[in-house]
């Protein structure tokens, strides 16, 4: 219940945060809902926390130039409740609404969730399916990483010391959906599948598929994407059959064996595709 002692600094701007992170070698904290639980169990013992939650302009959902920008410290509740997202990119609102519980969604942020990259968290899969651009700032300036490249391994992301996620940019897709098998204690994903489709006349023109919960980190299923292209609703089941094979080595734990996950991957990819198709 009691974390190890640490230093605390509050950042007033992104540059200030980067300077403070660089100088201290510490960790950024916004909502803290990935980090603080680990700190309370003393599974994470950062020497310094740099609070980025009050940095002006780092939070909010807005549309610009056909893209939607979501600030790093935007909470899951804000995403779930965003009219703009619900209208134009409902998968994000839908996935955010499935995270944790109401209080967690009121504090947890998209930037924190992506940077922490819990292998069973929901948003990484969605970011991959939407081919999101993750906008990062550091000492040497700004850079953008595609979501599929951002998640590299077990709690390992393309984020160097002193770097910060500042925003996530997505091209809105209506025909996208997220389907998840809940771990019944934590409500994290045993398997979570996010699918974004380009559909014309009931035919899938192209697809992008992200998977979470099943492997060391969220991954893209390019083979399934290929198989889905050109399919109608009746061809989905066959197209997703290879999904598990493509995922590679699967997680196994108390809640689900690798075999079970293997069987569930196509089920939830299919469910996500069907739900996305239903959105037209």
């Amino acid at each position: 219940m009691i974390p190890v002692a640490f230093d605390y600094q509050r950042a007033t701007s992104v540059d200030d945060a980067i300077a403070k992170l660089t100088a201290s070698g510490g960790k950024a904290i916004a909502g803290g809902h990935s980090l603080v639980p680990l700190m309370k169990l003393r599974l994470s013992e950062p020497g310094t926390l740099v609070d980025i939650s009050k940095i002006p302009g780092l939070s909010g959902v807005k549309e610009a130039g056909g893209k939607i920008e979501i600030g790093a410290t935007t909470t899951h509740a804000e995403i779930a409740g965003s009219k703009l997202l619900r209208d134009k990119c409902p998968i994000l609102a839908e996935a955010a609404a499935e995270i944790g519980d109401p209080q967690v969604r009121n504090r947890g942020t998209i930037g924190g969730s992506l940077a922490h990259a819990d292998p069973a968290s929901d948003l990484p899969a969605v970011a991959i399916a939407l081919d999101a651009d993750i906008q990062i700032k550091g000492r040497s300036g700004a850079r953008t990483v595609k979501a599929a490249a951002f998640f590299r391994g077990f709690y390992d992301v393309d984020l160097a010391a002193g770097e910060l996620i500042v925003a996530v940019h997505v091209t809105p897709v209506r025909s996208a959906a997220y389907a998840k098998l809940h771990q019944r204690a934590s409500h994290y994903a045993i398997v979570g599948a996010a699918v974004a489709l380009d559909v014309k006349g009931g035919v899938i023109q192209s697809a992008r598929v992200g998977l979470t919960g099943a492997t060391t980190h969220a991954i893209r299923l390019a083979g399934v994407e290929k198989a889905l292209a050109g399919k109608k609703a009746d061809g989905v089941a066959a197209a997703v059959a290879s999904a598990a094979g493509e995922a590679g080595d699967l997680n196994a734990d108390l809640h689900a064996s690798a075999d079970y996950r293997k069987a569930m991957i196509p089920v939830f990819v299919k469910r996500a595709v069907e739900r996305a198709l239903a959105r037209g």
Partner: peptide, 25 residues
């Protein structure tokens, strides 16, 4: 101590929050 049970819920800036998962600072 894992931020789940909600016994510590208070309202912070208008939204419900688990006060065991927020540092006072």
């Amino acid at each position: 101590d894992t931020s789940q049970c909600g016994a510590c819920t208070v309202i912070v800036d208008g939204r419900s929050a688990k006060s065991c998962t927020i540092f006072a600072v």
